[in-house]
């Protein structure tokens, strides 16, 4: 079933996955401070992770409700066709993201200390 070149391919792919996983791990392991929401690549708002709240994002393509509770952020509601954004595990570490592709929305945890002092930053 498997030939020699297949096994080489599998080994190369596993190595690529391991190396990129290590790089990703080194890039975001610290605790996050705030959640940065962008729609269509533009900043929608920055929200403190310690402040429990519900953020309703009204984008041009639809609605998403991001909830911040117990230091984590998760997508509680969305009217996108696939609903994948609601399947993401809660995010809390620096660099973690939740993506809603149909609405072109990204919620990204940042370690930005500036947001620690603020409840909400609106552009």
């Amino acid at each position: 079933m498997f030939r020699k070149k297949d096994l080489i391919l599998i080994a190369v792919l596993l190595a690529a996955a391991a190396v990129s996983a290590l790089l990703a791990a080194s890039a975001h392991r610290g605790a996050g401070a705030s959640v940065r929401i962008t729609v269509d690549g533009k900043l929608y708002g920055v929200y403190c992770l310690t402040q429990e709240c519900e953020i309703v994002v009204d984008g041009a393509r639809g609605h998403n409700t991001l909830v911040i509770a117990e230091g984590c952020a998760y997508m509680a509601e969305a009217d996108c066709p696939d609903g994948y954004c609601m399947d993401y595990r809660p995010i809390a570490r620096d660099g973690e993201t939740i993506v809603c592709l149909p609405h072109r929305l990204v919620a990204e945890v940042t370690g930005d200390a500036k947001a620690r002092k603020l409840d909400v930053v609106v552009p």
Partner: peptide, 26 residues
């Protein structure tokens, strides 16, 4: 996905997606 949402951080799913493609393709 990276191009559409214009956020390079989304590329952090790279290792997971390689592994997933390896298993499903296999």
């Amino acid at each position: 996905a990276v191009l559409v949402v214009q956020n390079l951080k989304v590329a952090f799913y790279f290792p997971a997606l390689i592994t997933a493609g390896l298993v499903t393709g296999g």
